[in-house]
C-alpha cells in the first residue's frame, strides 16, 4: 500500500478530529487540507512510526498556529463560528447532545484536545502524549480534569450558569 492510501485511511479521522476541535467545518477542512499538504511534502520513504499520531501532530501544530493568528478566540463569543452552527440534537444516556457540545467548548483548549484524542479518536495515553508532546502523566491529569469538568457542567446546572460574566473564556495571551 502506498503512503497516499495510508493517508486516506486516516482522512475521515483527521477530519472528524479537526471538526471537533474547531467546531467550524470550514476551518476544519482548511486544517485537514493543510495537514495533508504538509504530510505529503514532509514525508520521506522509510519514515517509520505511527502515521496517525504524526498526522494528528501536524494538524495540531497548524491549529495552534492558526489559533494564534485568530488571537483572542473566546469560545463563548457570539461571533465565533460554532455559535452559528445548528445545535446538536438527540441524547445519550440522559445527556442531551446539545449540552455535551456546549460543555465541550467550555473546556480549556488543552483539556478539550486531550479529551477528543482519547474519548473520540481512541488514542492510547502513550499516543496522545506523543501527539501533544507532553508526558503521559500530564495527559492523564488533563484528561481527568476534562472529564470531571464535563461532568460538573452536565450535572450541576449552577456550574453552567453564567450570570453577568463568562467564566470560561479560552484566552490566548497576546505575544
Amino acid at each position: 500500500m502506498s503512503f497516499e492510501s495510508d493517508l486516506l485511511v486516516w482522512l475521515p479521522h483527521l477530519r472528524r478530529y479537526a471538526r471537533a476541535l474547531t467546531r467550524d467545518p470550514a476551518w476544519a477542512d482548511d486544517l485537514v487540507q493543510d495537514t495533508l499538504e504538509r504530510a505529503l511534502s514532509k514525508w520521506r520513504w522509510g519514515r517509520g512510526g505511527n502515521l496517525r499520531a504524526w498526522l494528528l501532530t501536524l494538524l495540531r501544530h497548524r491549529f495552534i498556529d492558526q489559533l494564534r493568528s485568530r488571537r483572542e478566540v473566546a469560545f463563548d463569543d457570539e461571533e465565533a463560528p460554532w455559535q452559528q452552527q445548528p445545535a446538536a440534537t438527540g441524547e445519550v444516556d440522559g445527556l442531551l447532545l446539545r449540552d455535551v457540545e456546549r460543555a465541550l467548548y467550555r473546556l480549556p483548549l488543552e483539556q478539550r484536545e486531550v479529551l477528543l484524542l482519547i474519548a473520540l479518536e481512541e488514542l492510547s495515553y502513550q499516543e496522545a502524549a506523543k501527539v501533544l508532546k507532553v508526558p503521559v502523566g500530564t495527559v492523564m491529569s488533563r484528561l481527568s480534569r476534562a472529564r470531571e469538568r464535563m461532568r460538573i457542567l452536565l450535572t450541576e446546572p449552577a456550574a453552567d450558569a453564567t450570570p453577568g460574566r463568562p467564566p470560561l473564556k479560552v484566552v490566548k495571551h497576546s505575544p
Binding site: 475521515p12 477542512d29 485537514v32 487540507q33 495533508l36 505529503l40 440522559g94 445527556l95 477528543l116
Partner: peptide, 23 residues
C-alpha cells in the same frame, strides 16, 4: 456516557471527496 455522546456528536463522515491535495 461522555465518550458515547462525543462519538455521536462527531460521527466519522465518509465525505472525503471534496479534499484535493497536492505535494
Amino acid at each position: 456516557s461522555q465518550n458515547t455522546a462525543l462519538r455521536r456528536l462527531f460521527p466519522l463522515a465518509g465525505e472525503t471527496a471534496s479534499l484535493f491535495v497536492q505535494r
